[in-house]
């Protein structure tokens, strides 16, 4: 199966400080890919760079291919066609992501005009359909309202409707539920899962919420300090995480079944991009690190079970015995 998007050796630096150190990432048509990692590890920057949305102080190198199109170094007009048309993106804080001085209907119609050439009554009809599709009650009555007249959850629904307007092949959802409360989060996740199935649209789901990722994604990619450290099928990573960082993320999750054990947050904090450790960036926080880890950086290698892993001393691959197997965590539905 050919990939929808192929990112190769993507590097980003802000004012000379590198924050992405060569990301290789594929998205297959229709799949749901999760991108997880602590704050600041480069999840958003990866996709903002791919779409050419970073400010000009950012230096970007590497290749981003979408089907036959090479997005890296593409002229602005071509990027503008891709944005919202083939790859749409929604963001973390929905209330500030909509333009406060424009009516939501107008913001929706703008996307419809850009990517589907709809104007006037047909545009309005389609905008109303999209508002209805994402679950905005009374679309007709709310078409001419401003963003501040909607709740946070509704704003995110509107963002999703706007993203769908161009009928994209790929939706990047950058922490779409982080700013919302728990019940609304669940509703938005359900909506995204439903729409993906209905529209056969690939989704990249960026989150620090592993439970949510497990719920909607098939494949997970774990990032740390501007690199991918482990990547594989969601079940595989959840059952047998091999990178100590992945394991640490899971241990920091509340478990619903099994004995009630205290949560174990990963000790230490994410390193400053200006001051990265010499070897593996995770080594200073890693309980399994040895001398090698502090001096050499392991590359990302494909493993026999299909995952990719960047760790010199990973956790064991063999199936764990029954009583030590990590229990399934909250939100993991098999």
């Amino acid at each position: 199966m050919t990939n929808l998007v192929e990112i190769r050796d993507l590097r980003v630096a802000f004012d000379g400080v590198p924050v992405l150190h060569g990301i290789d990432l594929d998205v297959r048509p229709g799949e749901a890919l999760g991108l997880v990692g602590e704050s600041g590890c480069g999840k958003s920057v990866t996709w903002l760079a791919a779409l050419g949305l970073l400010p000009s102080k950012a230096t970007v190198s590497g290749r981003v291919r979408l089907g036959e199109t090479d997005l890296s170094g593409a002229p602005r007009a071509q990027l503008e066609q891709v944005r919202g048309g083939r790859i749409a993106m929604i963001f973390q804080d929905p209330s500030s992501a909509l333009n406060p001085v424009l009516k939501v209907g107008r913001q929706l119609c703008e996307a419809l005009k850009l990517h589907r050439g709809l104007t006037g009554a047909p545009a309005k009809a389609e905008a109303l359909r999209l508002m209805d599709l994402v679950g905005i009650p009374d679309p007709k009555g709310r078409f001419a309202l401003y963003p501040h007249e909607f709740s946070g959850g509704q704003c995110q629904r509107l963002m999703i409707a706007m993203a769908l307007a161009g009928e994209p092949d790929l939706l990047i959802a950058d922490e779409p539920t982080t700013a919302l409360d728990a019940t609304i989060q669940a509703q938005i996740l359900d909506l995204l899962a439903r729409l993906r199935a209905e529209m056969n649209m690939a989704t990249v789901f960026i989150s620090h919420d592993l439970g949510a990722v497990a719920q909607v994604c098939e494949r997970v990619c774990v990032m740390y300090a501007g690199r991918i450290v482990e990547q594989g099928e969601v079940g595989l990573l959840f059952d047998r995480p091999r990178h100590p960082y992945t394991r640490g993320l899971f241990d920091a999750l509340p478990r619903l079944d099994g004995p009630r054990v205290p949560l174990v947050p990963i000790r230490g904090t994410v390193p400053d991009p200006r001051n990265l450790p010499r070897g593996c960036a995770f080594a200073p926080r890693c309980a399994h690190a040895r001398d090698f880890c502090h001096s050499e950086r392991p590359d990302l290698h494909r493993q026999q079970d299909g995952r990719a892993l960047a760790c010199a001393y990973p956790l064991p691959a063999a199936p764990a015995t029954q009583d030590t197997a990590p229990a399934r965590r909250e939100g993991v539905h098999s």
Partner: peptide, 21 residues
């Protein structure tokens, strides 16, 4: 502001982002 990034992300041309948003 985030809404400017939103407008760019949905494919609005740069001078329309400036003028309209």
């Amino acid at each position: 502001q985030p809404y400017i990034r939103t407008a760019s992300a949905k494919g609005v041309r740069w001078h329309d982002v400036v003028r309209g948003h």
